[in-house]
Write a protein that binds this DNA or RNA. Structure first.
Lengths: 260, 260
DNA sequence: ACTGATTTGTGCGTATGTATC
DNA sequence: TGATACATACGCACAAATCAG
């Protein structure tokens, strides 16, 4: 399989002999780790599931075996590969598909891919709406909103970190029902929202803060996908504004153009 | 404006006094640069357009002023902010919206946002299809494809780096017409494709290789948005498979849920 | 069960870059 | 500016696990 033309590539790497004279501010082992992570993510080792030996890889990158080991041990800690003494290094997992459709339901998607979904409630509180949140929910400044933060998992691996804001006036008992472990869709239905649709998603990328990196169990040097979204009810009124951080190492977002 | 809850944050930074015991593999000045870049991108300074003084920032991050200056000078070189002696540091630009619709036409979108589009042809050649490309274009292994690589700009700033593959058999004269400076849409029309639609987009994030970072004029430590896409004609036959790398510092992808 | 080749795991010493004081 | 602490990267040597014959 041919690598994408502009993807990280062995010969993108500093010349094997002379050290780089440009200071990137990123250490050699970190760049090797990212290169390998990218290759694994690009399924370059998908056929056998086995990576080249430490000797081969260190020769390829032109570094000491210790340096290479530091890189792969970071990837191992991150759950991206598995090392077996005397045998070799093996790919651990592939990318999870996360569809961004008008009707996005998390658990269904995972189950369809044969994965066990999990969700952890991190925060649930009432607060005055920040300017951005008020604008997205079409509220007046000073209105209260309900903030719900969750960590979603698939097979025990963190997938995303979601912050959702709901208009407090409209959804009075939401926080209490969440505390009792009810599903979001079900709660909204009980509060009079029979159905809701995703109106818009804005997708950006960023590096995780320490907190996000820790919760998503991902290297702080590996990027996240960030999705800002607005869900509306059937009358078009905003129901929820959300900011979701996806682990870029584990997830790819899918946009299917629906048949009109 | 309140920052997103999990976005990079001053106190996500290593404690001001004790050095961090976790090895991130990224130097302090680089992390400060990335933190500031993220904040600028998150519009934290959008109201005044002015950043805090060097003294304030170095105090906030708990580093020497020299270290901070190295960070901001990197951002300046990258075109993200502008330093004026005796006045301060100012935000240079904001995010560009890039819609991912069924019918995506680059120039139109930019002009609607009041920007001047530009496109540079980097590569145009015929090659045997890699496994992945053949699968996406529904070709037999060994078939030839036409590879077209371009660099798109808005107001002179690089926006994306696109690789596109077309079935060689179907689109014979494509490379020649491209050499004459014709538009892609127009060429396809001349070759019998009256219209084409985006069937699917897969969105991931990755760090740029050296080549990509250079072409997109972006730090190698700042992430990219990567979009894999398949365009089909009105009969549903694949016309183009593309891999596009967007500068994560300059672009956000927009997914509008179309009314059915 | 043994041998040799391959692969990962570990220890030590040294030099250099980074950041602080 | 110089001194100090620490992380990074290199080189060499050897131990431990695995596998093919």
């Amino acid at each position: 399989m041919t690598p994408p033309t502009f993807a990280p590539h062995p010969f993108d790497f500093p010349a094997p002999v002379a050290p780089p004279h440009v200071r990137s501010g990123v250490t050699v082992w970190r760049r090797i780790a990212d290169t390998l992570a990218g290759e694994i993510r690009d399924r370059r080792y998908a056929d056998t599931g086995k990576l080249p030996s430490e000797a081969e890889l260190s020769a390829r990158f032109g570094v000491n075996r210790h340096t290479l080991r530091q890189a792969v041990s970071a990837l191992q800690a991150q759950g991206m590969l598995r090392i077996e003494q005397g045998r070799g290094m093996f790919v651990q997992h592939e990318l999870l598909n996360y569809p961004l459709a008008r009707r996005t339901r998390f658990s269904e998607n995972l189950q369809r891919q044969g994965l066990l979904p999990g969700k952890q409630l991190l925060t649930a509180r009432c607060e005055p709406a920040a300017e951005r949140v008020a604008r997205e929910l079409e509220l007046a400044g000073g209105d209260d909103v309900l903030l719900v933060e969750t960590l979603s998992e698939a097979n025990g691996q963190p997938v995303n970190l979601a912050s959702a804001w709901y208009p407090a006036e409209r959804f009075g008992g939401l926080l209490e029902m969440l505390g009792e472990g009810a599903q979001t869709t079900e709660i909204l239905a009980r509060l009079g929202v029979r159905d809701y649709l995703r109106r818009e998603s804005r997708i950006t990328t960023q590096l995780p803060g320490e907190e996000a990196a820790r919760l998503l169990r991902q290297s702080a040097a590996r990027p996240l996908l960030c999705v800002e979204s607005v869900d509306v009810d059937l009358e078009g009124r905003p129901v929820k504004y959300g900011e979701t951080l996806f682990s870029g190492d584990r997830v790819q977002l899918l946009v299917r153009s629906e048949d009109a």
